[in-house]
Nucleic acid binder design. Structure first.
Lengths: 157, 157
DNA sequence: TATTGTTATACTCTATAACTATA
DNA sequence: TATAGTTATAGAGTATAACAATA
């Protein structure tokens, strides 16, 4: 249990980290904003899935997810095939064009981060990644409509 | 210099940290959204200042700063007195009501973070704060209209 | 009746550009 | 002519609620 001062500092750091996110967002292709990039990245990491699962991984409402997915689908980066097991659902899957875009994103992130974090060691980047993962995990699902909250200690994706 | 894998992971973590920010934002009073809270916090930490300085600390455009400032001024949390030295400028200063609101914010952040981060040690919170500060510092000013970029190694505020 | 997903609407935050007043 | 600040407009991201189709 930390002190008030540390919590206030953390609140301030989180508030200010938006500037970093915006900076990184500026390297994205105009057609592929951050929301789209997140969809592609998660489909790459976790393989094909349904809308509801993707919304859970993104930790945003499904209505928002639906719009992000429509954006990337319109550009041919994913396809949505009907789920034979449940006709209400659609299965989301990366297309070859989607993988091309992912490669492009990786290049751009890589060169931007290599530039800005030139003096960071491997270990420091790992530490930050680990702490951010833990932070997300600790907050768990603090979403408005708090879902069933499956008992788990997994790091969120 | 870290590996591509680590950079991609960092990009993903930053993308996902928005959920934590939103979770924390939900504890704020309806009248005082995150942008307003940031204005009050910085005026408290750094004392009275002009718009341009505040925009720099917030790392957002002055036009945006102007609107946040108008919001808190309308609610009586700060006042804007003319700068005798430069009639174009106004000096921003917390009011007693602004300090009351800050105390309220501190309470709410405190109880939310104490709840979510119950199993974090002091050191871990400090480490995360330090790494986030360093991250912001490394990104320095990657803003669209990159300002003069005063040569400094200070941690951004 | 409950669930999956979509759409309409509203709100917050941000950036760009045009503008006013002062330096 | 340049700078401090404001306002208008536009765009991204998100949430809530109403809705359609299916379970």
């Amino acid at each position: 249990m930390a002190a008030r001062r540390q919590y206030e500092e953390l609140a301030r750091q989180l508030s200010a980290i938006g500037a970093v996110k915006r900076g990184l967002g500026r390297v994205l292709p105009h057609e592929c904003p951050a929301g789209s990039a997140a969809v592609l990245t998660l489909l790459d990491r976790h393989g094909e899935m349904r809308m509801s699962r993707l919304a859970e991984l993104l930790a945003i409402d499904m209505s928002v997810t639906s719009r992000h997915v429509a954006h990337v689908a319109e550009r041919g980066w994913i396809d949505r095939s009907p789920d034979p097991a449940d006709k209400r659902s659609r299965i989301l899957r990366l297309t070859p064009a989607g993988r091309d875009m992912l490669a492009e994103l990786s290049e751009r992130y890589m060169s931007a981060l290599a530039h800005y974090l030139a003096d960071w060691s491997d270990d420091e980047v790992d530490q930050l990644n680990a702490l951010l993962g833990r932070l997300r995990s600790s907050f768990g699902d603090c979403r408005p409509t708090s879902p069933p909250a499956e008992q788990t200690t997994r790091t969120p994706v």
